[in-house]
């Protein structure tokens, strides 16, 4: 019979809002590291936004990147410490908007890190502004109060469709709206860490995650929105996998 217990790597509480997906992502990361025996050489790179909570929550050496620069920071660490397991836990504003260049060039250089991007379609920490890459057309935010309008704000973009063409090791998207998808997301994250353990290239795992506070919904409604709306724009699955299947 399976048993489930909080990973021992998690040593402090994080200040995420009720129903936020970051906590699940943090759990999946730490479970994967512990299951692979990598917890004793993990280096955590967080962004100065909601993922920042993970800096103190984990029993890992950790560093906060300047906003958007996590992939570059991780590059510096991994080059100096190739035997450490270096991962990024950052948001979609960091990874796809202000830090698009850093994310893409880290992918192009095929730096063997594991990058986990939380796609919650919004700038959470700063109070819920529109995310140019991931806020859906029509979604209301504090900086798109009447709903995102493609004529003035452009369309959201599926970054994994871009990154998969940069010849990376692994790119996949998971979701957190039910246990089945959480399990699938965990398999992707684990693959990302296995790739790093096996000295392969750049792995990126994006996770469709709720931000009930800034979406102004209950956590259950937020999960429904991911399932019914966000996943349509951002399909889950493996986008590229040098070592195996591609969907």
């Amino acid at each position: 019979m399976a048993t489930y217990r909080k990973p021992v790597s998690i040593i402090n509480e994080a200040g995420w809002c009720g129903g936020c997906g970051h906590g699940v992502v943090q759990r999946l990361i730490t479970e994967c590291l512990e299951e692979l025996g990598l917890q004793d050489k993990a280096v955590c790179v967080v962004d100065i936004a909601c993922s920042y909570w993970s800096l103190d929550a984990l029993d890992y050496d950790a560093i906060a990147g300047p906003h958007g620069r996590c992939a570059a920071v991780a590059t510096g660490i991994k080059k100096v410490r190739p035997d450490s397991t270096v991962y990024v836990h950052a948001g979609d504003g960091s990874s796809y908007v202000i830090g698009l260049s850093e994310t893409c060039y880290t992918a192009i250089r095929d730096i063997p890190i594991t990058m986990i991007v939380v796609n919650n379609g919004i700038f959470g920490m700063t109070g819920g502004q529109m995310n140019l890459a991931t806020t859906l057309i029509g979604d209301k935010t504090v900086s798109s109060k009447e709903g995102r309008d493609a004529d003035t704000m452009g369309h959201p973009v599926d970054m994994l469709n871009i990154i998969k063409n940069l010849d990376v090791e692994f790119a996949a998207r998971g979701a957190l709206y039910d246990a089945k998808h959480i399990d699938e997301t965990k398999r992707y994250i684990k693959r990302g860490f296995e790739n790093q353990m096996n000295k392969k290239g750049f792995s990126i795992i994006e996770v469709l995650s709720p931000c009930p506070t800034n979406w102004k919904m209950t956590p259950i409604q937020a999960m429904e929105k991911i399932k019914n709306e966000n996943e349509k724009m951002f399909p889950v699955g493996i986008y590229t996998d040098r070592g195996g299947e591609t969907v």
Binding site: Y4, C20, R27, D178
Partner: peptide, 12 residues
């Protein structure tokens, strides 16, 4: 356990 973002649950 899987859904909870705050590690409330232990199953054993």
């Amino acid at each position: 356990y899987k859904m909870c973002p705050d590690y409330v649950f232990t199953v054993e």
